[in-house]
Lab assay of single mutants.
Amino acid sequence: NKFNKEMRNAYWEIALLPNLNNQQKRAFIRSLYDDPSQSANLLAEAKKLNDAQA
């Protein structure tokens, strides 16, 4: 399933972002599970926040 693969990839990328705190990571990951079709958008948002907090 395409969404499962995208979701799994996004999950690990988000989990490993160095500048997000655990609460932020959990919120993004919860959103991934709520709507796997938004994986790419959620990952992009997480990366933006990660960069902003660098």
Results as ranks from 00 to 15, higher is better:
Glu13Lys: 12
Ser37Trp: 07
Ser39Glu: 01
Pro36Glu: 02
Glu45Ile: 07
Tyr11Pro: 01
Pro36Asn: 03
Lys5Ser: 01
Pro18Thr: 06
Lys48Asn: 11
Pro18His: 06
Asn21Asp: 13
Ala52Ser: 11
Ala40Lys: 12
Tyr11Ala: 12
Gln53Gly: 04
Gln24Tyr: 03
Arg8Pro: 01
Gln53Cys: 06
Asn9Gly: 06
Leu32Cys: 02
Leu17Ala: 13
Lys2Ser: 14
Ile29Thr: 08
Leu16His: 15
Pro18Trp: 03
Leu42Gly: 02
Asn9Ala: 14
Ser39Pro: 10
Leu32His: 00
Asn1Lys: 09
Pro18Gly: 07
Asn21Val: 06
Asn41Ser: 11
Leu49Thr: 12
Ile14Pro: 00
Tyr11Cys: 13
Asn21Lys: 06
Leu32Gly: 01
Phe28Ala: 07
Ala44Phe: 09
Lys25Glu: 01
Ala54Asp: 06
Leu17Glu: 01
Gln53Pro: 09
Arg26Gln: 10
Asp34Gln: 06
Gln23Glu: 14
Leu49Ser: 04
Asp35Ala: 10
Gln53Ala: 11
Met7Asp: 02
Asn21Leu: 09
Ala46Pro: 00
Ala10Leu: 06
Ser39Leu: 15
Pro36Val: 03
Gln23Leu: 12
Lys48Arg: 09
Ala44Glu: 05
Asn41Arg: 11
Lys48His: 11
Ala10Asn: 04
Ala44Pro: 02
Arg30Val: 14
Arg30His: 11
Ala54Phe: 06
Ala52Phe: 10
Asp34Cys: 11
Leu43Gly: 02
Trp12Ala: 07
Glu13Asp: 04
Lys25Gln: 02
Asp34Asn: 10
Asp35Ile: 04
Arg26Asn: 13
Ala52His: 11
Ala27Tyr: 12
Arg8Gln: 12
Gln23His: 12
Arg8Thr: 10
Phe28Pro: 00
Ile14Lys: 00
Arg30Ile: 11
Ala54Thr: 13
Lys48Ser: 09
Leu43Cys: 14
Leu49Ala: 10
Arg8Lys: 12
Met7Ala: 07
Pro18Met: 04
Tyr11His: 08
Ser37Met: 11
Ala40His: 12
Asn1Tyr: 00
Tyr11Trp: 06
Asn9Cys: 12
Asn22Ser: 15
Phe28Thr: 03
Arg8Ser: 06
Leu20Val: 06
Glu45Asn: 13
Trp12Glu: 05
Ser31Phe: 13
Asn41His: 13
Gln24Trp: 03
Ile14Asp: 00
Glu6Ile: 06
Ala46Ile: 02
Asn50His: 03
Leu20Pro: 00
Gln23Ile: 13
Trp12Gly: 09
Asn50Cys: 03
Ala15Met: 13
Leu32Met: 04
Asn22Tyr: 11
Lys25Arg: 07
Ala15Val: 13
Leu49Asn: 03
Ala15Gly: 09
Lys47Ser: 05
Met7Phe: 11
Lys47Ala: 07
Arg8Cys: 15
Arg8Met: 15
Ser31His: 11
Asn9Trp: 14
Tyr33Asn: 02
Trp12Phe: 14
Asn19Tyr: 11
Asn19Lys: 07
Lys2Leu: 04
Leu17Phe: 09
Glu45Arg: 13
Glu6Asn: 03
Asn1Thr: 03
Asn4Ser: 03
Ala46Tyr: 03
Ala27Gln: 10
Leu49Asp: 03
Leu20Lys: 00
Lys25Phe: 10
Asn19Glu: 05
Lys5Pro: 08
Leu20Gln: 00
Asn1Pro: 15
Leu43Trp: 02
Lys48Tyr: 10
Ser37Gln: 13
Lys48Ile: 14
Phe3Lys: 15
Asn9Ile: 15
Lys5Leu: 01
Pro18Phe: 03
Ala44Thr: 08
Asp34Tyr: 05
Arg26Met: 07
Ala52Arg: 12
Met7Asn: 01
Phe3Ala: 15
Ala40Asp: 07
Gln53Met: 12
Leu32Pro: 00
Lys2Gln: 14
Arg26Ala: 11
Arg30Thr: 13
Asn1Asp: 14
Lys5Arg: 03
Asn21Pro: 06
Lys48Trp: 07
